[in-house]
Design a protein around this nucleic acid. Structure first.
Length: 844
DNA sequence: GAGCACTGC
């Protein structure tokens, strides 16, 4: 027996071939290092299971596809690209003779669009399927349909880590499952004896424990998992302050780092080293020689909130499976140990596995692909995990907006088919088609390329770099894409030279990748008959194209002094403070994301300024002239004003009714007397009441203790901004949900961020809004009020001050009593200020 | 008042 045949997977080789002779579906449960990825494809080929055809091996990462193909080709003594080959986004090393082909998931999905019968393919292997990437999920579903309908000979093999196969086996039934062992070393698991104190940060807990282990004489390299770059840097700073780490090498590792810095973390050293890393080290990069893993148990997780249509990036607890994967990193070369910075009881409450991507992310691209495959009803598609109906609904709405689906029938339109030629999110595909009409194909192809993959400009650069950037690429512009395009052109002109790129904080690797994407988009554009070369492009046309792709990301700055922005469909956000777009009222954001850093914020970035006339021109008939009216029994009056509105965003206000001011004045007086009750809560608050009422009711049914007001506030946060939607909670047994939530170490964090936004309005035109944790001192609020008053768009005279209050030192304003208490404290001071500044008015 | 995980066509 040679070295290869001693791999654990060979123990079940005859079972594998037997199962595939009897049937055409198979699941192989096998951990990493069982040899499955390299050996199973060869078994199929060598034992005649492929006939004359090819086996496609799907990989979740490009690097893995390339490395595996190289390894297998060498093992078979073949030249890469002959019998064994691979294909990833910009590299196809395969030929007609290729029998074993390693590909990334998107490659096969694209191929199925062009060639639904998959001619010449005898088998598909879905490797690392437990990672549950969107493209993998959909490709498997499509392949199962194909097998049932026209290709009964097609063999489908799913390979997955242990513990994930149950639902998949049901889904593929009838389908046998085989199990193989891995070849890793045992890892000893340790937990914290008790939950850490509330005030202690993850990095403090981690460093305290690392220090302890080092004092106990821990040897071998240490890998620490943290949720992000910020936490990594804090950890490193603390570690450097410990006596026990003297002489040790301490290095960060995360995706944002330049290649050279990543290599430094992966390299071997004489001294003991500590690597503090994000999830890159969980699957994508392997660090050799790690004997101990310290796991914070946290990760930043991307989600898509279909209710708001906004992407989120929040810190979440990782699943049990992910924790095992992290722990396994300590047992690659020898027995190891793993310290989990949470307690064992808490561990058992964690979810079993990560939520599949299809349940978490925007599904527009998938929806368009399936529509193109002729599916009229996506609900009836054979999903392994059906996406949230709300999420599906929103993506269909977006596709309809973009013109890819017919608003009458829901079927794909000719425009939709043309969009599908571009392997990119439908928004950018739509922009590319539009660019053909507006003579800016090259520019838009570059814009689209710049948004793919990692950011071109590195974040967290020092002042000098920022200064150099500002001089060369401009820091004021009508679109954030313009400086970005200049930066890329600069990198390209210097042949992506590392030194030049570094001077400007340009990610050289990312810039090369942009070049490849750009070329490929241009090629596709040419093939699709778009005019690639034409007369000089106008910036204005580029901006129009961007508006076409992102009309539902249109925002209007609320005032000149802050970054706050109203977004269509009643949403709110803050403009990226590094945006080059200033002094414009209307903007579209190519990226809107709710991010958890030290705070929780909706950030709008990659802005492009647009003009109101363009909206009329590009979306004819969608701007409505509306009269907003509202009857307020206390004011005994109708408040009304005429507005121009685009999808809920007020573009321009026209004259108000003469009644308005009088009514507003009346409201002001009532408010001053402290008798005004909130007439209507914001929608969030309404929902909060709904949800809390629901929970409170069920709590009692379960004999569960009372929920305190404090708890309610936290729940509000959990439901409005967390990854758990009301619907999900509703379908689960409540007691464990509530229990785990109450004992969550994130609870203090959640509490800190509870936004509890409350707005009281005395008329439609005056509004000041603060969120919890952000409310400034009263003097600053008064200043805001002045700004509001002086804003030309809000030509206010006697409209009352509107205050929404919550601050670190203030009681939360939740009830009318709270409001009264606040008002009686704050109003005299506000009044005093107002009186001083506007003595002509009578302030009561 | 102050912010960013990882992939993939």
């Amino acid at each position: 027996m040679n070295a290869t045949e001693s791999l654990p997977i060979w123990d079940i080789a005859s079972d594998i071939t037997g199962a595939l002779r009897d049937g055409n579906r198979l699941i192989i449960e096998a951990p990493t290092a069982s040899g499955k990825s390299t050996q199973v494809p060869q078994m199929l080929l060598d034992r005649g299971l492929l006939g004359e055809g090819q086996v496609m091996v799907l990989q979740p990462r490009r690097l893995a596809a390339r490395m595996l193909a190289t390894f297998v080709a060498r093992q078979r003594g073949a030249r890469l690209g002959d019998e064994v080959g691979f294909q990833i986004r910009f590299e196809d090393v395969s030929s007609r003779a290729t029998r074993i082909k390693y590909v990334t998931e998107g490659i096969l999905l694209r191929r199925m669009v062009r060639d639904p019968a998959l001619a010449g393919i005898s088998a598909i292997i879905f490797d690392e399927f437990h990672e549950r990437h969107v493209f993998g999920d959909v490709t498997l579903a499509q392949a199962l349909c194909l097998q049932e309908q026209t290709r009964p000979d097609l063999k489908l093999i799913v390979m997955s880590a242990t513990m994930h196969v149950g639902p998949i086996q049901e889904y593929m039934a009838p389908c046998p499952a085989l199990k193989s062992e891995g070849r890793t070393f045992p890892v000893e698991l340790e937990y914290l004896p008790r939950s850490p104190g509330r005030g202690e940060s993850v990095w403090e807990i981690a460093v305290r424990n690392i220090d302890r282990l080092l004092r106990e004489g821990l040897s071998g390299d240490i890998l620490v998992f943290m949720p992000g770059a910020h936490e990594i840097h804090r950890t490193i700073r603390e570690l450097q302050g410990c006596a026990s780490t003297k002489g040790l090498i301490i290095l960060p590792l995360h995706g944002e780092l330049a290649r050279a810095d990543q290599d430094a973390a992966l390299a071997g050293y004489e001294q003991q080293k500590i690597i503090v890393s994000t999830n890159v080290a969980e699957t994508s990069l392997t660090i050799h020689g790690v004997r101990t893993v310290i796991d914070s148990g946290l990760a930043r997780v991307a989600n898509y909130d279909p209710r708001r249509g906004i992407n989120t990036l929040l810190i979440d607890r990782i699943s049990r499976a992910a924790a095992d994967q992290r722990a396994g990193r300590a047992g690659r070369t020898a027995p190891g140990r793993c310290l989990r910075l949470w307690t064992q009881p808490e561990h058992s409450q964690r979810p079993r596995a990560e939520t599949p991507e299809i349940l978490r992310l925007d599904v527009s691209e998938i929806a368009l692909t399936l529509k193109a495959a002729g599916l009229s009803d996506l609900d009836s598609f054979r999903w392994l995990s059906p996406p949230d109906p709300e999420s599906l609904e929103r993506s269909l709405q977006l596709l309809t907006d973009l013109g890819a689906l017919s608003s009458a029938t829901g079927d794909i339109t000719p425009l939709g088919h043309r969009m599908l030629a571009f392997p990119v999110h439908p928004r950018y595909a739509r922009m590319l088609i539009e660019s053909g009409e507006r003579n800016c194909v090259k520019a838009i192809a570059l814009v689209a390329s710049l948004t793919q993959g990692r950011g071109l400009l590195q974040r967290r650069q020092d002042k000098e770099v920022k200064q150099r950037r500002a001089e060369l690429f401009d820091d004021r512009s009508d679109s954030d894409f313009f400086p970005l395009m200049r930066a890329w052109n600069f990198a390209a002109e210097h042949a992506f030279d590392l030194g030049q790129c570094r001077r400007y904080g340009i990610h050289a690797q990312a810039a090369r990748q942009v070049a490849a994407t750009f070329e490929s988009f241009l090629k596709t554009a040419q093939r699709e008959g778009l005019p690639v070369d034409g007369p000089a492009t106008r910036d204005e046309d580029i901006r129009r194209c961007i508006l076409v792709g992102f009309a539902d990301h249109l925002g209007r700055r609320m005032d000149g002094g802050t970054l706050r922005c109203d977004i269509v469909h009643g949403r709110r956000g803050d403009i990226d403070r590094e945006s080059a777009v200033r002094d414009h009222t209307l903007v579209v954001a190519s990226d809107i994301q709710e991010i958890e850093g030290r705070d929780l914020k909706v950030i709008m970035s990659l802005l492009t300024a647009v003009e109101e006339e363009w909206i009329e021109e590009l979306f004819p008939g969608e701007i409505q002239e509306r009269t907003e009216t509202e009857y307020d029994p206390r004011a005994r009056s109708v408040l009304s004003e005429r507005q121009r509105v685009f999808r809920g965003l007020v573009l321009e206000r026209k004259a108000a009714d003469p009644d308005t001011d009088a009514a507003a004045a009346l409201l002001a007086r009532e408010m001053a007397k402290g008798e005004l009750r909130p007439k209507s809560w914001s929608p969030e608050i309404d929902q909060w009441f709904d949800r809390v009422a629901f929970l409170a009711e069920h709590c009692r049914d379960l004999g569960f203790s009372e929920i305190t007001d404090d708890d309610k506030l936290q729940m509000f946060q959990q439901f409005c901004h967390g990854s758990t939607s009301y619907k999900q909670i509703k379908d689960k047994p409540l007691k464990p949900v509530i229990e785990s939530w109450l004992s969550s170490p994130l609870r203090p964090l959640v509490e800190k961020y509870a936004p509890a936004q409350i707005t009281l309005q005395g008329g439609k035109r005056a509004k000041v809004k603060y969120t919890r944790g952000q409310a400034p001192r009263i003097s600053k609020r008064i200043q805001d009020i002045y700004e509001l008053r002086e804003s030309p768009r809000l030509a206010m005279n006697r409209v009352p001050v509107v205050v929404e209050i919550l601050g670190p030192n203030m009681r939360p304003v939740q009830t009318t009593q709270d409001l009264k208490a606040f008002w009686s404290e704050a109003y005299p001071r506000i009044k005093q200020e107002l009186q001083r500044k506007y003595p002509k008015h009578e302030w009561r």
